[in-house]
């Protein structure tokens, strides 16, 4: 359920980058202060372990298809919330750079969706609460399954929100939710099962490893109230920034450019406080109807589109043909320049 660059708007991507960076900074401080320095190599090596583990498949019981470990909850159990969050974040960094899972701008979203929920919600408030300190095999499995399911449901819901508020995909909110949540229910159950199997194996063979993860940051030191409050604050912040950006202008950058250069034409559809308020309301209403196709198309094409909001399709033909031809030419030009540069490099 990696979020991709191609589905993100700069406002959403940027905000989530901010949130992820803040959480990384805070967790790093915590790890540095509270844990000994042997944790740093351990975190890195366990991150690499997650990679190795994700490449090994297993057959999912009763279906015959194959799946692999996600690892978020497992890391939280082994390392505690802060260290686990950092480790998940670095796994995602490598995935985005080398395997194009997600993307660089989407990194903030992915770190939040796949790191925050398992490390700061599912592990301390669900897994630890249910499992206790000396769990039986069944208890451990139940705890892991519920924790994994909750973590993934939250993550999946977060993906839906990010996608819908970015407005690149046309998938309506309700459809997307109906699509995402059940799939991730299944994934969560499998993830919980696998995590429980691995944890009980390790707990039997090397109990000190599982114990080590329990010590450093106990849920007692991570009060639910604080987490909920900071989560609330973060979501208000995110909601605020995103909806402000989204309503002020569909794309934040265009808005920024207009501000910097002072050009009026790019601001297109928005005039005055009324429209801002109206569209703000539209965004806050939970299911924004992204019907700005005409507006946006109109804004982008400027004076060519004078036929009004109906957007006469045949009227666009001229611009489209010109655009298509131009696209091909610019592509050819780009590769031509590249070819010349390459030749020069070889002779240099």
């Amino acid at each position: 359920m990696h979020m991709a660059d191609a589905l993100l708007s700069p406002a959403v991507g940027g905000t989530m980058w901010g949130v992820a960076a803040g959480t990384i900074a805070y967790s790093s401080m915590k790890v540095k202060k509270e844990l000994d320095d042997s944790k740093v190599p351990l975190m890195g090596v366990l991150g690499a372990f997650i990679f190795a583990a994700q490449m090994i498949n297993f057959t999912i019981p009763a279906t015959g298809s194959s799946g692999h470990l996600g690892g978020g909850l497992l890391l939280a159990i082994l390392l505690g919330p802060y260290a686990a969050f950092l480790t998940i974040a670095s796994v995602l960094v490598v995935q985005s750079l080398f395997f194009a899972d997600g993307g660089i701008l989407a990194l903030g979203c992915n770190i939040f969706n796949l790191g925050f929920f398992p490390a700061f919600i599912a592990y301390p408030f669900i897994y630890r609460k249910i499992a206790g300190s000396q769990p039986s095999r069944t208890r451990l499995s139940i705890a892991a399954i519920i924790a994994a399911v909750v973590g993934l449901q939250m993550g999946a819901f977060s993906v839906v929100l990010e996608t819908v508020s970015s407005g690149i995909s046309s998938l309506p909110f309700s459809t997307f939710v109906v699509l995402m949540q059940p799939i991730h229910l299944a994934i969560g159950i499998v993830e919980g099962l696998v995590t429980a199997t691995v944890v009980s194996f390790v707990a039997a063979a090397r109990p000190e490893i599982i114990r080590a993860g329990n010590d450093p940051v106990t849920p007692g030191r991570l009060p639910l109230r604080n987490v909920l409050l900071s989560f609330l604050a973060a979501s208000l912040l995110i909601g605020g920034i995103v909806s402000w950006f989204a309503s002020e202008n569909p794309d934040g950058l265009e808005w920024a450019i207009a501000k910097v250069t002072g050009t009026e034409e790019v601001t297109g559809t928005e005039e005055g406080v009324h429209t801002i308020l109206a569209s703000l309301q539209e965004k806050i209403a939970f299911l924004p109807d992204y019907s700005f196709k005409q507006e946006a198309a109109g804004a982008a094409e400027g004076e060519n589109n004078v036929d009004g909001p109906e957007g006469d399709a045949s009227g666009r033909l001229g611009t489209s043909v010109a655009g298509g031809v131009g696209a091909l030419i610019s592509l050819a030009l780009a590769f031509g320049i590249g070819f010349v540069l390459r030749r020069r490099q070889q002779f240099a």
């Binding site: 990384i24 900074a25 790093s28 401080m29 790890v31 540095k32 740093v40 190599p41 975190m43 890195g44 090596v45 991150g47 690499a48 372990f49 990679f51 950092l86 480790t87 974040a89 670095s90 796994v91 960094v93 490598v94």
Partner: peptide
């Protein structure tokens, strides 16, 4: 933060 980048390097190495 350094803690983050250092363990990122360890991750990559291993």
């Amino acid at each position: 933060p350094r803690t983050f980048t250092v363990q990122l390097l360890f991750l990559y190495r291993y």
